[in-house]
Amino acid sequence: MEFVSPEGLRLDGRRPMEMRQIRAEIGVVAKADGSAMFEMGNTKVIAAVYGPKEVQNRSQQLNANALVRCEYTMANFSTRRSDEKTKGRSTEISLVIRQTMEECILTNLMPRSQIDIFVQVLQADGGTRSACINAATLALADAGIPMRDLVTSCSAGYLNSTPLLDLNYIEDTCNRRLQGSCRLHREILLENTKQLEYRRGT
């Protein structure tokens, strides 16, 4: 399949180095301490932050730092087909987001406290992980939690020997169908803060 036409346009009309349209809104969940909605094209996620607050489970309490927890879920209606594998994937993405945010938050300023981050995918069209990181950042900022920097994320891939920015669902899944004959490298790119760098290749 041709993902970039000889005219240099991708299937949806973007050029290889263009992102999808971004839209963001904060304060979408009134009850939460901070919340944000983030859209990258047709991918739509919502994030809510509770905390810093008292640690619920005393055994997990850290004396020097704040405890950061993260839960990533996909709404049942976010995709057409229900994936069996979502459970494991969700746990993995939860972990990725938690690690990223933990490094970013100045946890030493809030010892013996807990910060809960909930992210949910409302509509999935590729790049949900990146969208969730962006949404979580906004929600944390909205909650007024001290951070080193604003973490932003965007997926990138290498398809048919062209580097592509911000893959959508079709571009993202093609490597499963082509079974490695065109290899897709994905990296989550984080800005500025070097310690936060989290790399991954699939």
Binding site: L11, D12, G13, R14, Q21, G41, R80, I170
Partner: peptide
């Protein structure tokens, strides 16, 4: 400029699904 294109299509299994794709105008 963003246009959402939605159409129905028949999958290989014979099911009818609705597909929504982004369509950027330049």
């Amino acid at each position: 400029m963003l246009q959402n294109r939605s159409y129905v299509k028949r999958t290989r299994g014979g099911k009818i699904t609705k597909v929504v794709r982004e369509h950027y105008l330049r």
